[in-house]
Design a protein around this nucleic acid. Structure first.
Lengths: 147, 147
DNA sequence: GAGAATGTGGGGAAAAGTGGGGAGATCGCC
DNA sequence: GGCGATCTCCCCACTTTTCCCCACATTCTC
């Protein structure tokens, strides 16, 4: 499985394209075929899953019972935001309008590696997010991982 | 199996035709022969199943017990709205009047990929639907998929 | 410091989306 | 049964968007 880490601030050009850091590109498994599926994050950002990783998620959604109202709603809410994008010859992807609007992304993106996915943030939104979650890291570690 | 995802707002022309997004068209299996079966959604929208997928649904309905009053009624309700349509040379389908009336579709449609089917919504109806179901997504995921 | 790799910008061909005309089939009416 | 109106398809034409390729500046590496 790809393990993304690190952060970088890149620009988004007039055509809505942004480069993926070379380090993250080289962390991609060949199975991903240089393709990501972008989707709406729980936070105000875009999640980018490499194709191989996304396939696993998709299987899960596909196995839900479509006769259940909740399941239909969930699938709708998640898949309507999902878009498949591939790297161009320059290692860039283009961001769908619906998603960059959701994440308030303008002409700059903050790209963050988060294990099995990459997150794309508007730098300002990310600063806000940090502001709202400035709990001491040590306390957090204890709360989440302290057995 | 075809795996539809993403959303797009398209127009419906004076003849009641609407294009199917190229991305969804290319997700069609050859077995579907560029043909969909449209039917009434459980929500106020039109479901479009690719032909191969619809065949499976039909099997399901066919295997229901015809001695049950409920089952007979269910089959009747579902099949009476089903209508087969094919893509024209431009990748469009034409929407039967009965269905577009049911879904209140005017000159714009919101097309949503939902796994094995495509959903056609009137944009306004969809906004209402969201309004009525704005449960937090994280909670929903937990409820439906939480182990 | 030279060469390679990385990030950024833009032009142009190809594809996608939209609208409309016209031939053929279907239906109703005279 | 004949005729006209309506509807359905198929085809053509135009506009917009997307994608692919080329080019350049900057950074990194050796």
């Amino acid at each position: 499985m790809a393990r993304f880490k690190g952060q970088a601030e890149y620009s988004v050009d007039a055509k809505g394209r942004t480069a993926i850091p070379a380090k993250m590109r080289s962390a991609l498994s060949p199975d991903a075929q240089n393709t990501f599926t972008l989707t709406k994050g729980f936070e105000p950002c875009i999640y980018a899953y490499p194709q191989d990783q996304w396939k696993i998620k998709e299987e899960e959604y596909g196995s839900l019972n479509t006769n259940s109202r909740d399941a239909r709603h969930l699938v709708r809410m998640i898949l309507m935001w999902a878009e498949e994008v591939s790297l161009d010859g320059q290692g860039r992807i283009s961001l769908p309008k619906s998603l960059s609007e959701y994440a308030s992304i303008g002409d700059k993106v903050l790209i963050i590696g988060a294990m099995d996915r990459i997150e794309l943030w508007d730098p300002e939104q990310f600063a806000n997010y940090l502001q709202d979650h400035k709990e001491d890291q040590e306390t957090l570690v204890e709360r989440v991982m302290g057995s």
